[in-house]
């Protein structure tokens, strides 16, 4: 039992990070139909800026705030300079643009920071916490709590505020949203900024556990994208479920089946689920209109 709990908590922690990245994918996808492969770079920026700011003597909470602001600025610039000018291009062209942005951001980070791995101290000490025989890093609770808070805030924002409803309207139909007077360009910029913030928060929360470097983004984007698709693209709840499920699959697979084929196990499950449910777990069924 303690072994299962140990694996379960590890999987949940890893999965929570995937969930945040997947949430970032979803937010941008909903507002603009763009799949943003530079999403992982926001995670990297969150971690790296915090590391370098706190190394410069800035207290951790302020450093984290700076990191989030930097990521948001980068997200907005990405939208204004690369995505907005390419409006109307095919979906795959825009994916290539975001891949270009990912290469560019990595290239910039290796110059602005360095190519070493870095860590942050755990927010509340290194001592593990004992839960029914499993020892859990205290930072895991920060990650889980942070993810839950981010999801809650996003939910309240989307469902209860006027701007949030405008985002939902834009995602439902851009034309209709524009007709009722919503400035869809602003909404899309907002989505990029918000998504960058979520990514950066994920990066800050997880760096004490996973360490960070200028090129952690690629792996994060890959796993986050997989999680978003697993849950059903465009569904925020699906993103969270998909992320947690992917993390659990990986860890339980490594613990009970084979650590060598750990990543394979997760992707086999994704393929099986997609074959059975071509729209992901919680995706909407789409109908071709002619």
């Amino acid at each position: 039992m303690s072994e299962f709990l140990q694996l379960f908590f590890s999987g949940l922690t890893v999965g929570a990070v995937y969930a945040l990245v997947a949430l970032g994918f979803t937010l941008i996808y909903n507002a603009s139909d763009v799949v943003n492969f530079a999403q992982g770079e926001f995670v990297m920026l969150g971690g790296m800026v915090t590391v370098f700011a706190s190394a410069a003597g800035i207290p951790l909470p302020v450093a984290a705030l700076i990191a989030v602001s930097v990521a948001v600025a980068v997200g907005l610039l990405l939208y204004w300079l690369a995505i907005a000018p390419a409006r109307g291009a095919s979906a795959v062209s825009i994916i290539i643009i975001t891949i270009g942005a990912s290469i560019l951001l990595k290239g910039a980070a290796q110059i602005a920071f360095d190519k070493q791995f870095h860590r942050l101290p755990a927010f509340s000490g290194d001592a593990p916490i004992d839960v029914l025989g499993a020892s859990i890093q205290s930072q895991s609770f920060w990650v889980l709590g942070g993810t839950a808070t981010a999801v809650l805030i996003l939910y309240v924002f989307l469902e209860k505020t006027l701007v949030g409803k405008a985002v939902l309207a834009t995602s439902a139909s851009r034309l209709a949203a524009r007709l009722v007077g919503i400035n869809t360009a602003t909404i899309m910029a907002l989505a990029f900024g918000g998504s960058a913030a979520i990514g950066a928060i994920a990066g800050i929360l997880v760096t004490p556990i996973t360490l960070t470097s200028y090129d952690v983004g690629t792996m994060m984007a890959l796993k986050g994208f997989a999680a978003a698709m697993l849950g059903g693209m465009g569904n925020p709840l699906g993103a969270v479920v998909g992320g947690l499920l992917l993390g659990l699959l990986e860890t339980l697979g490594a613990g009970y089946v084979s650590s060598t084929y750990k990543d394979g196990f997760a992707f086999v499950m994704i393929l099986v689920i997609l074959f059975a449910m071509p729209q992901g777990l919680l995706g909407r069924r789409t109908v071709d209109r002619v």
Partner: peptide
Amino acid sequence: YENLMLGFIIIVAMVFMR
């Protein structure tokens, strides 16, 4: 600056030659 340039050129090429 190699990777920075590579990313930049890909973006510019796709934006202007979509």
